[in-house]
C-alpha cells in the first residue's frame, strides 16, 4: 500500500500489470480507460514510450469514497516488459497491493511467459512482498490470435495453483474488465482483512467492484 492516512481519511492502493514484453499490458490499461466510466477515474498517463514499447510505466488512477468518508485511490500501473528494464519493474512493483500477470497466449511466447513469471517471483521477494500473500491473477491475452496455448492446457496447468486466470483479447476489449475485476476482488479481500473496509468504513465488496468497473 502506498499510503493510508487515517486522520486525512485517505487510502492509496497500487495495482501492477506485469508480464513479458509485448504481452499487452498497456493495451489492457488503454481498454480499461476506454471501457470504464470517466467518473471517479483519472486520465491514462503514458510515460515515454519508444517504438510503442513502454520504457517507464503507464498509470491509470481510480477514485472512490467509502460510506465512512474514506477516500480510496487505486493507482493501476504497467511495468516495462523488456528484460533490460528490470530496475524500473522493481521500482514499480514496490508496495503493490496486487498484480495482474499478463501472459501472451501464443505458443511461441511460452518461454518468455515463464521467464517473466520467474522474474516477477524474484522481484516480489526483492521488494519484500510475499507472493503467497499478494493478490495475483493471470491473464492469457491475445486469445484472438492463432497458434495459441489451448484452453484445456491452461486449465490443467493453472487450476492446481489456485491462482485465478482469465482469457482475454485486450485489443478487442474481451476479458479486460474481468481480469481487472478479479484482481480488485482479491485486493479488496486482502485490504478488508487488514483495515476493515466493511466493518470500519462500510464499504461492501460488491459496491467496491461495481464502482470501480462501471462501464461508460
Amino acid at each position: 500500500m502506498i499510503e493510508f492516512d487515517e486522520l486525512e481519511k485517505k487510502m492509496v492502493l497500487k495495482l501492477v500489470y506485469y508480464g513479458p514484453a509485448r504481452s499487452g499490458k498497456t493495451t489492457n490499461l488503454l481498454k480499461l480507460h476506454d471501457l470504464l466510466s470517466d467518473e471517479g477515474r483519472g486520465g491514462l498517463m503514458v510515460l515515454d514510450t519508444q517504438d510503442d514499447r513502454t520504457i517507464y510505466f503507464d498509470l491509470l488512477p481510480f477514485f472512490l469514497m467509502a460510506p465512512s468518508g474514506l477516500r480510496i485511490k487505486v493507482k493501476v500501473y504497467t511495468v516495462p516488459g523488456q528484460v533490460r528494464h528490470d530496475a524500473t519493474r522493481k521500482a514499480v512493483l514496490q508496495r503493490a497491493d496486487g498484480v495482474a500477470f499478463i501472459a501472451d497466449s501464443q505458443l511461441t511466447e511460452k518461454v518468455n511467459n515463464s521467464e517473466s513469471f520467474d522474474n516477477l517471483e524474484k522481484n516480489l521477494s526483492i521488494v519484500g512482498l510475499n507472493i503467497d500473500k499478494t493478490p495475483l491473477v493471470i491473464q492469457f491475452n491475445k486469445r484472438d490470435l492463432e497458434r495459441i496455448i489451448p484452453e484445456p492446457e491452461i486449465k490443467t496447468t493453472w487450476t492446481p495453483t489456485g491462482l485465478p486466470f482469465f482469457l482475454a483479447s485486450a485489443l478487442e476489449g474481451n476479458g479486460v474488465i474481468e481480469t481487472f475485476s478479479g484482481l480488485l476482488g482479491l485486493m479488496y479481500d486482502n485490504i478488508d482483512r487488514q483495515y476493515g473496509l466493511l466493518a470500519k468504513h462500510g464499504l461492501e465488496r460488491e459496491t467496491f467492484l461495481k464502482k470501480m468497473t462501471t462501464k461508460r
Binding site: 502506498i2 492509496v12 497500487k14 510505466f57 514496490q94 508496495r95 526483492i126 519484500g128
Partner: peptide, 15 residues
C-alpha cells in the same frame, strides 16, 4: 541495503 532503503521515492507516492 534493501531496495526500500535505497529508494527515497515510491512510485505512486501522493504528491
Amino acid at each position: 541495503m534493501s531496495i526500500e532503503e535505497r529508494l527515497s521515492f515510491i512510485i505512486g507516492e501522493e504528491k
